[in-house]
Design a protein around this nucleic acid. Structure first.
Lengths: 217, 217
DNA sequence: ACAATTAATAAATCACAGTTCATTAGTCGG
DNA sequence: CCGACTAATGAACTGTGATTTATTAATTGT
């Protein structure tokens, strides 16, 4: 006997926060932080202006919640995947990039990363949080893998941090790109980003690998 | 007999626009577009709220002027440099990156590029303009160089566009990084970005070069 | 069925920042 | 020195959009 009233509104305390955050994610990614109005978020979530304030302090608070919700979990999944893997480091890196693309790069999450970078200066504490929880964690993971590859003789000796930078750069660039100028281009003008990432990785790995022993293959 | 009055304002029609754009560049890079107030720009330029409107339509107009003013010229200088160079392609690419860093990457210009990416969705026409005038031009230049390297046997055969992406990615990443999370970090936590760029380039070039003949060296 | 409770609304508040405009003050030609 | 002109001012206007709050309507327990 709970549902059949065509009343002008519904009480759904338990699901409201999630609905609001979903709507906010969508709009933030599409328009940026400042440009999305609270009323838009509310309407998109099927409620009115005031309702979000029942669940969140203010707009910033919603932004923070959205970021925590959508990015941190994804990243820790990636670490677990890496921890489980057996086999050579190159193929693990390729796998990681593939999964990263599927789970983050090609999703709204990427737009959020880009937004985070765009707004970092305006939200110092959130930026710090994100840096600690997401970026540093990811970098450490990759750095460890590179060291492992070097220890095994799979990779030649290179400065580890710089190699991490080089490997990360295509990911960052693709996220930023797709959600800035990428939106402007005609469809097809910039084909299949996932393949491009793969090629970039190949190129970098080729530069990273110890090619002295590769002749015997 | 023009200057000695301690009057509360000065008439300087010819230099005002430049002063205003300088102030705006500084503030936009520091705070982003929305967060910088017209009054801040005016004050930083040594005038009052109304004055900028004598020279520019509105805030957007100032933003556009700043972008055109500060980025396009720099980039065309780079093309000229490339056109003049003789010698192998690898060293030209290294040189270009070095000059890029000195003239753009390490200057306010980088902050502006980052801002442009952050705001591209809000300024479609400006983004398109920038894409045509700056990005496309730069990419074409690099693509031509890579093709040249391949034709000479200096580089192995790789998909050109992807190689361009890979070479550009560290530049984009460094601009974005330095003006987002980079601001947050303690000094020294992320050492010398120019050296990092150089290492990244080495790594990528190593992956790009045709190593079959390098044994004879 | 009815009080007490609280989710949700919608109208009102409030502050800020972009823009305008009537006024003031230098400038320039004669 | 004077009048026409215009750079510059800064007070006033304005729209917008984030919060607040009084009110309404479900819900829940008894």
């Amino acid at each position: 006997m709970t549902a059949k009233l065509p009343s002008r509104w519904q009480r759904k305390k338990d699901v409201r926060p999630g609905e609001i955050l979903d709507a906010a994610l969508e709009l933030f990614v599409e328009k940026g932080f400042r440009a999305t109005k609270m009323e838009d978020i509310a309407r998109a979530a099927g409620v009115t202006k005031g309702t979000p304030y029942l669940y969140f302090q203010n707009k910033e608070d919603i932004f923070k919640a959205v970021v925590r919700e959508s990015l941190v979990n994804e990243l820790s999944d990636l670490s677990q995947l890496a921890a489980r893997h057996e086999g050579d480091v190159s193929s693990l890196l390729a796998l990681l990039m593939e999964v990263w693309w599927a789970r983050i790069g090609s999703t709204r999450g990427a737009g959020l990363c880009k937004l985070m970078m765009a707004e970092a200066a305006n939200f110092p504490e959130l930026a710090t949080f994100y840096y600690q929880e997401v970026i540093l964690r990811g970098r450490t993971m990759v750095a460890d893998l590179i060291r492992l590859g070097m220890a095994r003789g799979e990779f030649r000796a290179v400065p580890v941090e710089s190699a991490v930078d080089t490997l990360m750069a295509p990911l960052i660039a693709s996220m930023v790109w797709d959600h800035s100028f990428g939106c402007i281009l005609q469809a097809g003008e910039d084909a299949d980003p996932s393949r491009r990432l793969a090629v970039a990785l190949d190129l970098i790995l080729y530069g990273l690998k110890n090619n002295n022993t590769s002749e015997e293959n």
